[in-house]
Write a protein that binds this DNA or RNA. Structure first.
Lengths: 328, 328
DNA sequence: CTGAAAGCGCTTACAG
DNA sequence: CTGAAAGCGCTTACAG
């Protein structure tokens, strides 16, 4: 492949001049420019980005670390992050960890070393001290969807409020025995949704029954057996709040598999508003989060950080109720 | 951040020696190594991968270009590609084009310039001459899922055979008026599936009725209105073969929306075997493709290419019928 | 407006 | 086994 020097030689100028006409921010004589461009075309020259980045100390590349590419919420969020990255001249590297900490650490190791200008993490858990360490080294880091504490470079949704809305809606439809299928509590958003669930019950004077709460549902089973369990124990319930749409879909499957009907016997409400919410039957009533906007906002925040600005406050986006057929 | 030189200075050795103890393939005195490692630890030194790659002319990074991250077949395939990349010490950059040629060209421009050692494309169309040009420049390129001609570095599925199986099965269940909801014909796999569809009909002596064939269904609508149209025209049919699971799901939605039942009035069969096949009601009978294996095989093929080997033949993986509830 | 030179942070023949 | 030097392909003060 042709290099800067090859172009310079063919055009009869110095390497500096080629570099300058390429960058465009220093004046180069018209005549000279013509010769340079001609040489570039003839040699099909493309600058070596590695060399450029090494010199400039910046790659215009950012990494987005997601925990599970097969959970559709992440592709949805990714689209927003991608579009915003592109709009600002950044390339996005997408890394999927499958919730595996060692995979995540490998990616960080590889990418930290000047490959990328910054990170967005959608993988934070309470034990993510390795990410905090990155941050403390001065590497731009933004937390998205999940966060580990209240620092400023964070884009999340109002999980407490969203969960409250879900449960409040169920209660308004006459439900009083409301089960909660929740994710692992070492992820803050599940703690927050649990809070919202409890708050709503309390405010309506409905006692909290711990037997109705299942935390720590993992990604493999994703609520199917958790729901089956609840059903088979004979615990009375008239509704289920699932902390994500995939969990809600699995809960519906489980309920049906026991010969019960949704929402006839048990109402189900989810959290996300993914495509599957309109595929499952009955279609899923759920709390919508603005996936695309989460992505764009997180990327904007990261780019500001890379450009040396400070971000004032954590950003918390709103959720809203989408009523479909799964609540009576 | 600390550099090689900083480490060398602290350890009281030359940069060469640090580099050698790091690489591990040239003998360095035990004593010296100890000093070097101590310095590395103390300074928290991490090598600058940019500089390393520039020198070595290789980044151990590969790009996977996919057309639509929200179509679950691509996340599924990506997992396989990722795992194989990691196993071989490569980092995977995932790029989503949203079927937009200009986005694709931007990615190629940026990544070709030494960012990546090779590409896997799942985006090939008949007009993808820009990809062939990459190949002709000697850059390792593998086609996956979609291909543009029969060259060796290609991992696809037996689309003709798969489509044949689908239609053959419908016929075996007594269907004779079989509609076909297909994708754009400038993508080879849809031409092949069309071939398989026609072959199966011919072999069973069933006339081909062009009014039953809808090609060029795009990703936005993805079959919903195509199906509605077919229904509203009053064209008689007892089955639908959809060229992908998302299209099949949308066809089912459309059929139901007209008050007809699946499979009572119309049987539906898909192609993919994604999670949504078990979410939709009735659960979807479909032709399964080995998504994860496609990913691993494509990545293996690319890595062989990067390592300077030739790949003998195009790889064509098999499909199989998964019977569920959507065919009577 | 342009060129020669230094340097980004590595690796690797070349000597010893 | 180890060091000094050259070089990967760029960019950018420094001179002129």
């Amino acid at each position: 492949m042709a290099t800067l020097k090859d172009v310079a030689r063919l055009a009869g100028v110095s390497a500096s001049t080629v570099s300058r006409t390429l960058s465009g921010n220093i004046h180069v004589d018209e005549q000279t420019q013509q010769k340079v461009w001609a040489a570039i075309k003839e040699l099909k020259y493309k600058p070596n980005i590695l060399a450029k980045s090494l010199k400039e100390g910046r790659t215009n590349t950012v990494a987005l670390i997601i925990p599970n590419i097969r959970n559709p919420i992440f592709p949805a969020v990714t689209r927003g992050a991608e579009d915003t990255a592109r709009k600002n001249g950044f390339t996005l590297i997408l890394c999927n960890t499958d919730e595996d900490l060692s995979v995540e650490k490998d990616y960080i190791d590889k990418l930290t070393n000047r490959w990328v200008d910054g990170f967005i993490f959608a993988t934070a858990r309470d034990d993510s001290s390795h990410i905090m360490e990155l941050k403390s080294q001065g590497i731009p880091v933004v937390f998205m969807i999940r966060s580990i504490d209240n620092h400023s470079d964070t884009v999340t949704v109002d999980n407490r409020g969203g969960a409250y809305k879900a449960v409040d809606y169920l209660i308004s439809r006459g439900c009083t025995r409301i089960a909660f299928i929740n994710g692992p509590l070492d992820i803050d958003l599940y703690r927050q949704r649990l809070d919202g669930y409890k708050n709503a019950l309390k405010e309506h004077g409905i006692p909290i029954d711990d037997r109705l709460i299942v935390n720590d549902v993992n990604d493999q089973d994703n609520g199917y057996h958790a729901m089956l369990n609840l059903l088979d124990k004979g615990i009375k319930m008239d509704a289920v709040f699932a902390a994500s749409d995939p969990k809600a879909v699995n809960a519906i499957k489980a309920i049906k598999s026991r010969g019960l009907s949704v929402p006839g016997d048990i109402s189900v409400i989810g959290f996300d508003d993914l495509d599957i919410a309109t595929i499952v039957e009955p279609s899923l009533t759920t709390i919508a989060q603005p996936a695309y906007d989460i992505g764009t906002t997180a990327m904007d925040t990261l780019i500001r950080l890379i450009d040396g600005h400070q971000n004032a406050k954590p950003i918390v986006l709103d959720t809203h109720l989408v009523v479909r057929q799964s609540v009576r």
